[in-house]
Design a protein around this nucleic acid. Structure first.
Lengths: 345, 345
DNA sequence: TTGAAAGCGCTAACAC
DNA sequence: GTGTTAGCGCTTTCAA
């Protein structure tokens, strides 16, 4: 490790490399950004100087000049306690990995709970990020409309439910297909009275997932009457809903809009001495850690978040290209992870 | 919303504000950074222009000039599937919140699994971040030593186990105290044969937590012989360990080094038709979502991650102050969240 | 209290 | 191919 020319702590600059290699600063810049412009021997010499000094372009300077930060902003909501919901954390992991391969880093920020726009504006106006990934589209997404008026590049994880004509790129997972998968799985195992526990009606995602259950039932000519419940996404609500359904509808299986609700069902079963998988089948949604480790394993719909991240970054790259290319929406298919809670074997 | 002078998409600059307010650029800069230098009426006028244009200083330019990015880098490991472990995700949330209050954003990055240093070097040399938060100190932390040689500011979440004379700031949670708390909780409820399931001996954290259990037992004059098991941090390992211990040591309670292992115990109990809390007491560590939602609730040691984040940012601010002030290590006390798995009421 | 000049490190545009 | 010039938007001197 050779000592840099300045004081330790001040990384070498383009000028340092240029001096050491005996070329101009511009040539060093070209060596870094357009190597094919240089003659082979010059490139070699510059590269050697770069290696010797451990040179890497200063981000701030490059950002200032190129008007790009190579940063993707993503707002995260406070961690939800008491639920099984960690989809966004898993997505962030995938996004960080995928972004890195595309030369981007992920900048996380948080905002006031009540203001869905907080945080975006500052980052945008200070040109701190090149684009956003928005994700909390649970009940529609005001961010999308707002960002569009600001002409800010962004990709949404989640369909523009409340605005079908929206033009921005989005990536989503087909929740209806997932629940259809889950329901068919139980139907294939001989269940006929399959109950649904989902979210309140104002949730677009919840209604979508519910539709998958209903479709599967209808397709087999089975009635859904009295078999559905719509509640808050909490364990307690899931437990109560399950208790009521068990008494009033006598289902042999449950398909739930979330692992959180499914855990509520497990609570209800446990209270009655019923065993999931043996006495009553249960399927959740999200393949959370909870689903993975709870005995006897919770069968659950798994979103392909790695693929969501890949498609998201792909769309992002299009948006940030010159000229920008807006991609269409992408809808991915989830899979079903079968575990003990949906029956033996 | 007034239109900015340039094309839409080009945010207003200092010069735009200066022109509108009829002052020099420098005065605008002072208005933003040293408002008390301005006369009240000038400040008022400039502030009005700033508001009108929606001006916010360009980050890249400011970063270049001040040699600071106001970004904290944190490397995250791939999400762990099949475990209950989400401590780092919870910590990231807290860190993002706390950093924001201190004027910092969190930049996430990932690196090759095999190379603990990957990613750090690039960010450092390109002056992309002001400091790092390192966290994966499970088996010691080579990053710390490396970052110290680079004179890079960083704070560790986790003690420098393998280097007691390390001088860098760190924040950690007293795992031994947590397990002592857990064990005493069971002792207070009348248990005497309390088994330990922990990690392999090369884990500093694991040995620390184990010491808390052993200390609590010894303090009451109880033997620990044959009651401890050291395994991998997986559900399967926890299940096997519990099975063996149930047969050979006949414990009435388990204290585990992680919620993942505790879930393994729940699996073992479930296989034998035993009920956690009624037949056998179980305590985990981390108060994961799993602990929160699994029936009948898993009693678990909770790390005060919000406080860890606060102390981390405090130490970071010291490091980045002029002149820097290195703070000492901070050891925080965890708490015990009591749920059904450790017995009724 | 305000303004003018310089320069952070880099790259785009052009001259050689 | 390579070097020169200019300037991205900001803050730190220093002078008025």
């Amino acid at each position: 490790m050779s000592s840099s020319p300045g004081r330790a702590g001040t990384p070498p600059t383009l000028a340092d490399v240029a001096e050491l290699a005996g070329v101009s600063r511009q040539t060093v810049s070209n060596a870094v950004n357009n190597p094919d412009l240089l003659r082979a021997d010059t490139l070699e010499r510059v590269q050697q100087a770069i290696d010797e000094l451990g040179y890497l372009p200063n981000r701030a300077a490059r950002n200032l000049r190129t008007r790009a930060s190579h940063l993707i902003g993503m707002r995260i909501k406070p961690a939800q306690e008491g639920t099984a919901n960690a989809t966004m954390d898993r997505f962030v992991h995938s996004l960080v990995d995928t972004s890195r391969e595309a030369g981007y880093h992920v900048l996380l920020f948080s905002g006031e709970l009540d203001d869905p726009l907080a945080g975006y504006d500052d980052l945008l106006r200070s040109t701190a990020v090149d684009a956003f990934v928005i994700s909390d589209t649970f009940l529609g997404n005001p961010q999308a409309a707002w960002l569009e008026t600001k002409r800010a590049p962004f990709v949404a994880f989640g369909r523009p439910w409340d605005n079908p004509v929206a033009r921005h790129p989005w990536v989503d997972v087909d929740g209806a297909a997932g629940c259809e998968l889950a329901t068919n799985h139980l139907l294939d195992r001989g269940h006929e009275r399959i109950a649904w526990i989902g979210w309140r009606k104002d949730s677009f995602i919840g209604e979508d997932r519910r539709a998958g259950w209903a479709r599967a039932m209808r397709t087999r000519g089975l009635s859904t009457t009295g078999l559905a419940s719509r509640v808050e996404d909490t364990v307690a609500s899931g437990r109560e809903a399950a208790t009521v359904l068990l008494d009033e509808a006598r289902p042999s299986g449950f398909v739930c809009a979330s692992d959180t609700l499914a855990m509520g069902v497990l609570h209800a079963l446990s209270e009655r001495g019923l065993l999931p998988g043996r006495d009553i089948a249960v399927v959740g949604f999200d393949d959370s850690q909870v689903a993975q480790v709870v005995p006897p394993g919770l069968t659950s719909v798994r979103q392909p978040l790695e693929d969501v991240a890949i498609e998201t970054v792909k769309a992002l790259e299009g948006l940030l290209a010159h000229p920008p290319t807006a991609s269409a929406g992408v809808l991915l298919k989830p899979s079903l992870v079968v575990r003990g809670s949906s029956g033996p074997e």
